[in-house]
Amino acid sequence: MGMGATTKITPRWEHFSHESDIGIRGLAGTLEEAFVQAALGLTAVITGVADVSPRERIGIECAGDDSEILLLDWINALIYEMATRKMLFSRFSVTFTGDGLQGEAWGEPIDAAKHHPAVEIKGATFTELKVCRDKQGTWVAQCVVDV
């Protein structure tokens, strides 16, 4: 029944409160999609996701088998790519390989006039870092990011 029930879960992201910073949370029927949604939540801290055109693709790989550490690495890799390529991303894909994660991010160069970026993200933190499946079968992938 698992598969049938989980596919009905609408993938989404949300922000949650932290006194000085902000939490990002991805929710979905699969772990992969929860990671994708968390990444969309990350972009939404900076700008409107719909304002970013997915024009260029970059690949991201993270090694390891601990899903929480993988989430931390995935988010930190995206922060690193945004910072060094001066890009924002609005489309993602994630595949787990057994010994890590293979991801893709599509986006475009930051354009202050188009994106009005609110804030630069310094890094993902262990605060509220959680990857789990709730009773309804929804995968949750979340952490607080330092801004």
Binding site: L72, Y80, A83, T84, K122, G123, T125
Partner: peptide, 17 residues
């Protein structure tokens, strides 16, 4: 700037592990 953020992040993870 980015250098400090990256060092903070990398060592936080190394210290946790």
């Amino acid at each position: 700037r980015g250098l400090g953020h990256q060092i903070g992040m990398e060592f936080l993870k190394r210290m946790v592990l």
